[in-house]
């Protein structure tokens, strides 16, 4: 709990600052707080949050998945391919895509557990491999949905109206569902307990009779599955995907969100709420820059600097309290 207080505080500070800076004299209102902006922001948090939870699943086992962005690309290209080029009904196409992504995760898990390869190596090669394969597969064509999935697009662009100007975006509900199920899995189930135990000390967990191999594979399967879900949401949101750029760098956003939210890279530590807050912070920063800055040239620099400052302050505060004790 203590670990997420820092990020929650940082989130509040940045949100307040953004609100303050977003005062629009002509409409006499804070544009940051407009229903339109909030629903856009929450929608992005929904989509990127799913990716961060995906990343967190393998990070708690002490592993890493660098292929998330490329799996997003696989889902983003395969979904239009099935829907538009082959006329597969949406309710069959999406499960098929998710199944394919889960299979990618299974492949990762088997290489890591069965062959004993390092997660970094396996997933780094995955990052290159899947994007390359998708580029060849699509012939570098833009894969557009072309109006074949207007009902399914509700998942990404739908709103549940709350007030006249604000509706809860559907991806946020997807994230809420994923987060609740993940949280229950992590904290209430035996498998979740075992997952964290093996993340902290794989050998001791194995000596306690935990099926460490099977659980590690499961973590990679779930990671890729969720990355695939994220990929589907993204392509449903923007209507088309281009294999060469779709989901580029998203693994880093996902990992940053998870780590910011208190998931320790050494494994065995983390809370779903923290991961969601981490994803919030990443998206909030982008929103802030777009709402406040004259151009977005400095965007990456600002995101990097704020995260670094946040981490430094967090560590400083923790040390201060440790010394006081």
């Amino acid at each position: 709990m203590k670990k997420i207080l820092g990020i929650a505080a940082l989130l509040v500070v940045i949100a307040l600052t953004t609100t303050w800076l977003s005062w629009d004299a002509s409409s006499q209102s804070y544009t940051f707080l407009s229903g339109y902006n909030l629903q856009n922001l929450l929608q992005r948090i929904g989509m990127f949050g799913v990716l961060s939870i995906a990343a967190a699943f393998v990070i708690v086992t002490g592993g890493i998945d660098l292929s998330i962005g490329s799996v997003v690309c696989v889902a983003g290209c395969m979904l239009p391919w099935l829907l538009r080029d082959h006329g597969v009904p949406p309710l069959i196409a999406m499960p098929l895509v998710l199944l394919l992504c889960a299979a990618i995760g299974l492949w990762h898990g088997l290489l890591i557990v069965g062959l004993g390869l390092q997660p970094f190596v396996v997933t780094l090669c995955g990052l290159l491999l899947y994007r390359g394969v998708m580029r060849a597969f699509t012939g570098d064509q833009t894969m557009g949905l072309g109006g074949t999935a207007d009902e399914l697009r509700w998942l990404a662009t739908g709103r549940i109206p709350i007030t006249e100007s604000f509706g809860l975006p559907a991806p946020l509900l997807v994230l809420a569902l994923v987060a609740v199920v993940t949280s229950i899995f992590w904290t209430r189930t035996v498998a979740g307990r075992h997952l964290f135990a093996l993340g902290r000390n794989e050998e001791a967990a194995r000596f306690a009779g935990v099926a460490t191999g099977r659980l590690t594979v499961l973590a990679y399967v779930l990671c890729s599955l969720l990355a695939g879900l994220g990929g589907c949401l993204f392509v449903l949101d923007v209507n088309s995907a281009q294999a060469s750029s779709f989901g580029n760098f998203y693994e880093l956003y996902a990992i940053a969100g998870a780590v910011l939210g208190g998931v320790a890279l050494r494994g065995g530590e983390g809370m779903v709420l923290g991961v969601v807050l981490g994803a919030c912070l990443m998206q909030l920063l982008q929103n802030t820059i777009n709402l406040v800055a004259d151009s977005n040239q400095l965007e990456f620099a600002v995101v990097g600097a704020v995260i670094l400052a946040g981490a430094a302050v967090d560590e400083g505060v923790r040390r201060f309290f440790r010394r006081r004790r």
Binding site: T187, R188, T189, V190, A191, G192, R193, H194, F196, A197, R200, N201, A204, A205, F207, A208, G209, V210, G268, E269
Partner: peptide, 24 residues
């Protein structure tokens, strides 16, 4: 022998928890 970073309670139940069902 132990997952040092986990609590006494969690270590005690680690090998037998699965005998009590899927949920903790």
């Amino acid at each position: 022998g132990l997952v040092l970073g986990m609590s006494v309670r969690d270590n005690l139940s680690l090998p037998t928890l699965h005998r009590r069902g899927r949920f903790i």
